[in-house]
Simulated scan of single mutants.
Amino acid sequence: MQYSRLGSSDLQVSRVCLGTMTWGKQNDQADADAQLEYSLNQGINFIDTAEMYAVPPSADTYGKTETILGNWLAKNASKRKELIVASKIAGPGISYIRGGGDITAEAVIQSVDASLQRLQTDYIDLYQLHWPNRTTPHFGKHWPGQVSFTDVDTLKHSNQMLEILQALDTCVKAGKIRYCGLSDDTTWGIAEYLRLSEKYSLPRMVSIQNEFNLLHTKDWPYLVEQCVHSDVAYLPWSPLAGGMLSGKYLNGQRPEGSRWTLTQRNGLFRDTPMSQAAVKEYVDLAASLSMTPCQLALAWVNQVDGVTSTIIGATSMVQLKEDIGAFEHRLSDTQLAAIAAVHQRFPVAF
């Protein structure tokens, strides 16, 4: 396993981050325990969760994933110091989470304490804002005209950001969190948080996790460049496009128990003629290179300049082993050129 520094922090994280959002819905405690043991044995030290999980989110499963991870941590207390545990506070819009309200200072303090209790730990290594208070071009809203930036009250949101940073600072000083990060945010969000941190001597955002895969590369090059030059770790989530890049959803297939048989939310299941055509080409290309489609897609993400660690998730040990094994592949220049040729034909397929 290879490791990279997490942005401007002093943390060294594995190039593979174990995502946990299926725990509590598609996976139970025994499944999670097995995934954790295998992942740690492969050198993975970076675990990502969130208060909102399991996914698809519901009032019944809210907090279950953190609880499952916390149960494992309680049984394996000696391993806690070896892990980089990341969690997230949910943004606005979910009625059963703080009434669907914005992220506020009070919400940060309350959420950190609640996550610590569920995780059964004294500290969270990386605490992230799951999505901003303002609407951003994520979750399928990346086409022109879907988000109106001119309707945003810039000063209001900047002041909210300052309030959030001050609350995070309180948590850092109390030893409850070590570092702070973003998720599903933009170049402006990164820059504004960094500006406020420097101006007011508050905690610095060290990372951002955004949707990124061969079908959905909107962060390249501008946001990734921002991350590199601002020393902010870039953490792709959904590197397999919700499983679509595995090829298992081609031609209308819906394997029993797979994610696309569950509730659709936020336009994440983008089953279009364009995405189907792109996936078919990537599947064929992978076969010609003696790789599985998942190995091709994950190896490609891992080699994108500026990527720090890729967040993977699996519902079975077979999937997990294949996904982790993908990071042992080093794509050659010739292979990368072949992938680029497909990508150039389908630059915005998802």
Rank of each mutant, 00 (worst) to 15 (best):
A167S: 09
Y123T: 15
W237P: 03
Y234M: 10
A59N: 10
L214V: 03
V147I: 13
T308P: 01
M161N: 03
L202G: 02
S207D: 10
T20R: 01
A107D: 02
C171D: 10
L202Q: 05
L214Y: 03
P56W: 13
D284A: 10
Y38M: 12
V348L: 13
N76F: 10
T292N: 14
K248W: 14
Y282Q: 03
R178I: 13
I89C: 00
G93P: 04
K75I: 06
G325A: 07
T272V: 05
A90P: 01
A340F: 11
I44K: 01
L155N: 00
D169L: 07
Y249C: 05
Y222N: 05
A338L: 15
V301N: 02
Q29A: 14
R178N: 12
W237A: 04
I44H: 01
K79Q: 03
L69V: 04
F269S: 02
K156W: 15
C171Y: 13
K25G: 09
A77F: 05
S258H: 00
T121P: 04
P92M: 02
H216G: 06
I312R: 01
K75E: 07
T67D: 10
I190V: 14
H157S: 12
P273K: 12
I109A: 06
G306I: 07
K218D: 13
C171T: 08
Y38W: 11
G325S: 12
A86D: 02
Y53W: 08
G19C: 09
K64M: 12
A174N: 06
A349P: 01
F212S: 01
Y3E: 00
P56H: 12
E225I: 11
T334D: 09
P144N: 00
S158A: 00
T292R: 12
S8Y: 15
P273V: 12
G181W: 01
D333K: 09
K75F: 08
T121E: 04
S258E: 03
T217C: 09
D185F: 04
C17I: 05
L6V: 11
S309V: 08
K173W: 15
S8T: 11
V283G: 04
Q42E: 14
G189D: 09
A32T: 07
Q2P: 05
I324T: 01
L119I: 10
M52G: 03
G91W: 04
Q26G: 08
L202S: 07
L165E: 00
K173Q: 15
A86N: 05
D151V: 15
L129H: 02
T263V: 15
M161D: 01
Q42C: 11
G175Y: 13
L223S: 04
H229V: 15
G257V: 03
T150R: 06
R134K: 04
Q319S: 04
L165S: 02
T170N: 10
Q295D: 11
A191S: 08
Y38G: 00
A314L: 05
L168I: 05
I339W: 02
A34T: 15
L168H: 05
E281K: 08
L168W: 04
G7L: 06
F346D: 01
P347F: 09
S201N: 13
G63N: 02
D60W: 07
G267P: 01
L168K: 00
P255R: 04
S238R: 07
V172K: 09
G242W: 00
E192V: 12
L126T: 07
K75R: 10
A114G: 04
D102K: 08
G267D: 06
S275N: 02
D169C: 06
T310N: 02
